[in-house]
Design a protein around this nucleic acid. Structure first.
Lengths: 243, 243
DNA sequence: CATTCTTTGTGTTATTTTGACACAAAGCTT
DNA sequence: AAGCTTTGTGTCAAAATAACACAAAGAATG
């Protein structure tokens, strides 16, 4: 019945054979946002046949960790930041996708506010890490272009449904900055007044009673996102964050 | 800088070591719909310590296939059906999740119209496959309860955004059947008239000019879903399938 | 110091979408 | 023929969305 030599892994005992074991890597798409640009943290690839191209940041899964833990390890290695937003994208398992041999990859994406955190990017020169504008990326190593596309689609979807965008903005932001962020990430244009009305109606922005500094025009009011209130609303089911 | 012994898998050459290779399995959550019930195709598990419980259907990934191909192989093995809807759920990689040793699992879910296809379920007795009402499932083997929950959440989300529900219904269906389906899967109640208005407004249902047979009341009109028109609308961007 | 420039902040109206609700029609049963 | 069950349909109120213009704040300029 079952054509597999190994049988149903979930019902009867069989031993795990070496020839059906695989290297697993975890690749991270690290999105950053800065001055109205969505960027991705990339690294130079010098592995044939992809020399000269850039690639996502990835490492092999280790013996005693989950893929999520591996993703956090990678993030900490290149940003020295913990607690970043992290979301699984997909699995990439084409047998020929990696020149070193068969590597099955789990992709995750993560979000960073470049303005707030650039100072933490460790040793960027040594690691040849670089923020590249998303719109300028078109030919990554391996199947990373596909991974990036998938990750971006996931980001676009999730950013509409959950307040993950705020982790890409400074802690204090203006409504215009927030609007620009959504317009950039979602590649849309929205009416300023309608956007403000909608956001204020959520009741999740804290008016900091401060205004911008050092701008050569009327300074905008500063807000922060009320994560506490969001959690409460989430718990009591009152929530509909929808951009 | 990088603490990993293996270094960045995507930049420089390192060999793939045996101690960091893993067994990978693919598990399928096969949803079926029949007489207003959402069901899942499960198999008896007789592996300690989970004897007596039921589990999802899964097999080990083979050397030359993608995880998607493995999922299709599994589906064909237990339903002899090809071209079923298939969607990735998530990866499960806790080191202790499987008693045989470390197994990293990719979960997929798939959809079947039980009414149309039950005849194709091969050798259900031999394989100890059984359709179990979703609401009666509460203690599966391994971490399969978690996988099922994740898969169901994905199904609920996708069924609202894409016309995947029609692959769980007979090819000819009544509007009431369609409504019952959405009410069951989404665990909501909707107004009959408003539901009909919304669905007809999509312009994607074909009025078959037929009515039900063998019912002891006024027979309902039969419809089918216009997959062709849906594809066209999708291509020209006119689409907003949203239940 | 008055004028200009840029950007912020705000309210109303028309349109569309959603939600609530009741009764007649079809076909089978008795 | 009367009764039963389920299907099929329209209107109106409420809510959400989309479109739109002008005054106010502060810096820069002459």
């Amino acid at each position: 019945m079952t054509s597999s030599k190994t049988g149903n892994i979930n019902t009867w005992l069989s031993h795990l054979q070496e020839e059906t074991k695989f290297s697993i890597s975890v690749d991270c798409v690290i999105f950053g946002y800065d001055s109205s640009k969505l960027k991705v943290l990339l690294i130079d690839c010098n592995m044939p046949p992809y020399e000269g191209r850039k690639s996502l940041i990835g490492e092999l899964l280790e013996a005693k960790e989950t893929t999520t833990q591996a993703a956090r390890r990678i993030l900490k290695n290149c940003t020295s930041l913990k607690d970043l937003y992290l979301e699984e994208v997909s699995v990439y398992s084409n047998p020929d996708r990696h020149p070193l041999g068969r590597v099955v990859t789990l992709a995750y994406y993560s979000l960073i506010s470049i303005a707030d955190y650039e100072k933490h990017i460790v040793d960027a020169a040594n690691k040849r890490l670089e923020w590249i504008d998303l719109e300028d990326i078109n030919k990554l190593a391996f199947d990373h272009q596909e991974i990036l596309t998938d990750a971006y689609n996931r980001l676009q979807r999730t950013v509409r449904e959950k307040p993950i965008g705020f982790s890409m903005l400074p802690k204090k932001f203006t409504l215009i900055q927030l609007q620009n962020f959504y317009e950039t990430v979602l590649n849309i244009e929205v009416d300023r007044r309608n956007f403000r009305r909608k956001l204020m109606a959520l009741g999740l922005l804290i008016d900091l009673q401060e205004v911008q500094d050092n701008v050569s025009h009327r300074p905008a009011k500063l807000y922060s996102f009320d994560f506490e209130k969001y959690k409460q609303k989430q718990n009591i089911g009152t929530l509909n964050f929808e951009i």
